[in-house]
Simulated scan of single mutants.
Amino acid sequence: MIRCLVVDDEQHAIDIMKHYIGQTNFLELVSSTTNPVEALQTVITENIDLVFLDIQMPELSGIDFIKAINGKAKVILTTAYSEFAIEGFELEVVDYLLKPVRFPRFLTAVQKAVKLINDKPAVAEPDTSNEADYIFVKTESKGKLLKINLADIEYIEGMKNYVAIFIGGKKTLVYTNLKDLINHLPAKQFIRVHKSFIIPISRITGIEGNMILLKSVTAEILIGENYKADLMEIIKHKMIS
Rank of each mutant, 00 (worst) to 15 (best):
S32D: 08
T108F: 11
Q23V: 00
F84V: 01
K228T: 00
I182L: 13
S82R: 14
N130I: 13
V110N: 02
E46V: 00
D49C: 09
T139V: 06
L222D: 04
A113I: 05
K138V: 00
F84E: 01
P104V: 01
I165K: 10
I207F: 10
T172V: 15
I235N: 08
A164G: 11
K179E: 13
M211H: 13
K120Q: 14
I153H: 06
L231Q: 00
I156L: 12
Q189A: 10
A229F: 13
D9N: 09
I117Q: 03
A164M: 14
K74V: 00
E233G: 04
I204C: 09
M1T: 10
N210F: 12
I198D: 07
A85G: 03
V75Y: 11
K188I: 03
I223M: 06
N130H: 15
Y134S: 13
N177E: 08
K144G: 00
N177G: 13
V101K: 03
F136M: 11
E233Q: 13
T139N: 04
V114C: 15
E131H: 12
K138H: 10
A132C: 13
K115Y: 12
K188R: 14
V217M: 09
L98H: 05
T42V: 14
M159Y: 14
P121L: 05
E83S: 02
N149G: 11
L27T: 03
S216D: 15
I14A: 11
P100W: 02
I167M: 10
S196W: 02
P104R: 07
